Computed example of a mutant assay.
Amino acid sequence: MKLVMVLMLAVLPLCCYAGSGCSLLENVIEKTIDPTVSKEEYRDYIQAFTQSKTEENVVDEFKQCFLQQSNETLANFEQMMQTIYNSVFCKIF
Protein backbone atom coordinates (compact mmCIF):
# COMPACT_ATOMS: atom_id res chain seq x y z
CA MET A 1 0.00 0.00 0.00
CA LYS A 2 2.84 2.38 0.80
CA LEU A 3 4.34 1.58 -2.58
CA VAL A 4 1.08 2.55 -4.28
CA MET A 5 1.11 5.90 -2.49
CA VAL A 6 4.73 6.54 -3.41
CA LEU A 7 4.06 5.72 -7.06
CA MET A 8 1.02 8.00 -7.23
CA LEU A 9 2.91 10.87 -5.62
CA ALA A 10 5.82 10.31 -7.98
CA VAL A 11 3.65 10.29 -11.12
CA LEU A 12 1.57 13.39 -10.35
CA PRO A 13 4.50 15.85 -10.35
CA LEU A 14 5.63 14.40 -13.69
CA CYS A 15 2.23 15.25 -15.17
CA CYS A 16 2.72 18.81 -14.01
CA TYR A 17 6.24 18.93 -15.43
CA ALA A 18 5.01 17.51 -18.75
CA GLY A 19 2.94 20.61 -19.35
CA SER A 20 -0.53 19.64 -18.19
CA GLY A 21 -0.43 22.44 -15.62
CA CYS A 22 0.30 22.64 -11.95
CA SER A 23 -3.28 23.67 -11.21
CA LEU A 24 -4.29 20.13 -12.19
CA LEU A 25 -1.77 18.72 -9.74
CA GLU A 26 -2.97 21.03 -6.98
CA ASN A 27 -6.60 20.06 -7.63
CA VAL A 28 -5.80 16.34 -7.53
CA ILE A 29 -3.91 16.78 -4.27
CA GLU A 30 -6.80 18.79 -2.81
CA LYS A 31 -9.29 16.10 -3.75
CA THR A 32 -6.95 13.40 -2.46
CA ILE A 33 -6.73 14.84 1.03
CA ASP A 34 -10.31 16.15 1.24
CA PRO A 35 -12.23 13.74 3.50
CA THR A 36 -15.58 14.88 2.03
CA VAL A 37 -14.66 13.57 -1.44
CA SER A 38 -15.76 9.95 -1.79
CA LYS A 39 -13.79 7.28 -3.62
CA GLU A 40 -16.34 7.37 -6.45
CA GLU A 41 -16.05 11.16 -6.88
CA TYR A 42 -12.27 10.90 -6.74
CA ARG A 43 -12.20 8.11 -9.32
CA ASP A 44 -14.47 10.13 -11.63
CA TYR A 45 -12.25 13.20 -11.24
CA ILE A 46 -9.07 11.42 -12.32
CA GLN A 47 -10.73 9.08 -14.79
CA ALA A 48 -8.65 10.51 -17.64
CA PHE A 49 -5.52 9.08 -16.00
CA THR A 50 -6.83 5.56 -15.43
CA GLN A 51 -7.03 3.14 -18.31
CA SER A 52 -7.92 -0.18 -16.75
CA LYS A 53 -9.93 -1.69 -13.94
CA THR A 54 -6.69 -2.47 -12.12
CA GLU A 55 -5.69 1.18 -12.16
CA GLU A 56 -9.14 2.17 -10.90
CA ASN A 57 -8.72 -0.27 -8.02
CA VAL A 58 -5.35 1.26 -7.19
CA VAL A 59 -6.90 4.73 -7.21
CA ASP A 60 -9.62 3.49 -4.83
CA GLU A 61 -7.02 2.04 -2.47
CA PHE A 62 -4.97 5.24 -2.67
CA LYS A 63 -7.98 7.40 -1.75
CA GLN A 64 -8.97 4.97 1.01
CA CYS A 65 -5.56 5.49 2.62
CA PHE A 66 -6.35 9.18 3.00
CA LEU A 67 -9.95 8.59 4.10
CA GLN A 68 -8.65 6.58 7.05
CA GLN A 69 -6.45 9.42 8.34
CA SER A 70 -7.34 11.95 11.02
CA ASN A 71 -7.94 15.59 10.14
CA GLU A 72 -4.68 16.46 11.90
CA THR A 73 -2.73 14.04 9.71
CA LEU A 74 -4.40 15.39 6.57
CA ALA A 75 -3.55 18.96 7.60
CA ASN A 76 0.07 17.96 8.18
CA PHE A 77 0.17 16.26 4.79
CA GLU A 78 -1.21 19.38 3.11
CA GLN A 79 1.40 21.50 4.87
CA MET A 80 4.15 19.11 3.73
CA MET A 81 2.95 19.32 0.12
CA GLN A 82 2.94 23.14 0.27
CA THR A 83 6.46 23.10 1.69
CA ILE A 84 7.66 20.84 -1.12
CA TYR A 85 6.10 22.93 -3.90
CA ASN A 86 7.32 26.18 -2.42
CA SER A 87 10.87 24.87 -2.02
CA VAL A 88 13.82 26.08 -4.04
CA PHE A 89 14.35 22.64 -5.57
CA CYS A 90 10.82 22.44 -6.95
CA LYS A 91 11.12 25.89 -8.52
CA ILE A 92 14.11 24.69 -10.56
CA PHE A 93 11.69 22.67 -12.71
Rank of each mutant, 00 (worst) to 15 (best):
A18L: 15
K91G: 00
L7K: 11
V28F: 05
R43N: 07
F89G: 00
T32H: 05
A75E: 14
F77Q: 11
V37N: 02
E30I: 03
K63C: 05
M80H: 05
T83P: 00
S20K: 13
S38W: 04
E30Q: 14
S38A: 02
L24M: 15
L67V: 03
T32F: 04
D60C: 07
S87C: 06
F62I: 10
F66M: 12
V28Y: 05
L7N: 05
K63Y: 05
T83L: 14
T50I: 10
C22N: 07
E55F: 01
T83M: 14
F62R: 04
Q69M: 15
F49Q: 07
E30G: 05
E72D: 10
S87Q: 10
V4Y: 06
F66A: 03
S20D: 11
D44W: 01
D34S: 09
G21T: 10
C90D: 11
E55P: 01
N76P: 01
Y45C: 02
F89L: 15
V28K: 04
V37I: 15
V11S: 08
P35C: 01
E41A: 05
F89E: 14
F66C: 02
M80W: 10
S38T: 15
Q79H: 09
T36P: 03
K2M: 12
F77L: 15
G19F: 12
N57R: 08
T83V: 10
L25I: 10
F62N: 03
F89Y: 13
C90A: 13
V6G: 00
G19Q: 09
T32M: 13
F77N: 07
S23I: 12
Y85V: 07
Q51S: 01
L74F: 02
M8Q: 09
L3A: 11
Y42C: 03
Q69I: 02
K31Y: 07
E78G: 11
L24K: 09
C90F: 15
C65M: 13
